[in-house]
Design a protein around this nucleic acid. Sequence first.
DNA 1: GTAAGTGCAAATGGTTTGCAGATTC
DNA 2: GAATCTGCAAACCATTTGCACTTAC
Lengths: 139, 139
Amino acid sequence: MMNTYASSDAIACLRQAGIPVTHQRIEIARALFSAPVHLSADQIWAKVLEASPDVSRATVYNTLRLFSEKKMIRELFVDPQRVVYDSTTAPHYHLYNIDSGEVRDISDDELRVIGQPRLPAGVVLDAIDVIVRVRNRAV
Amino acid sequence: MMNTYASSDAIACLRQAGIPVTHQRIEIARALFSAPVHLSADQIWAKVLEASPDVSRATVYNTLRLFSEKKMIRELFVDPQRVVYDSTTAPHYHLYNIDSGEVRDISDDELRVIGQPRLPAGVVLDAIDVIVRVRNRAV
DNA sequence: GTAAGTGCAAATGGTTTGCAGATTC
DNA sequence: GAATCTGCAAACCATTTGCACTTAC
């Protein structure tokens, strides 16, 4: 199988992040980084199972949390009870379709955030999330 | 008790939104609109119980959903498993402290979103959510 | 060889739902 | 008086956790 993102790439990526390498983590990394994606944990699990049927759901959830902590991926809270993982970590914004659940990136020339908020003392900036919510036109 | 937001105000507000008036809804409206607040459903429930000890949690959850649908309040998805209700519906953005859970409004002169995303065909804009995430400075 | 990761299944916890009884207009 | 809302407790469901086993180096 000709994959743009090979196991060796995934291994290098994990090593660089200081994460011990395992089969499962390699498969999860490949599911995420073969192409830019916006997927829920269960969608990623399904994708991983295609390549490697012996990965448990719990491992996928735990690994996604680990990757998020290591800033390899980004968590998007588009809905309560629905976390979407974004394999692109460069700053950018999102368009979310409430009806279909679809997430799309917004390019920098479409929307820009200017200014910076006054931060209360003792806190540091973590991220700026912009989510443009749309719905299907009413029938 | 001298409340800035009396029951009569709440009743008027509910009528205007086309929502049948009940004791419970009046109390929930007062908890929300006596002052601008950012509260979770359970925090609102606790506040309502102080004034009226016979309101169930389910009613608070259902009513908050109803108010959101009627655009009387706004739901903020600051965290999975945590919806915060904002009693201010005018467009504005938010600062969220990941560690403390605190939500604060960001005024228009601090941060501004410019441009408008190209919307896919068949969809309409619902809302633009901007959440600036901060954390307490590491010790 | 040892520390760490994994799988399973059970626990978690905020939110919702079904239904009988109470309220509103 | 009819339709609706509320309370209770059980159901939900994505996510997490505990623990015995397996794996990586």
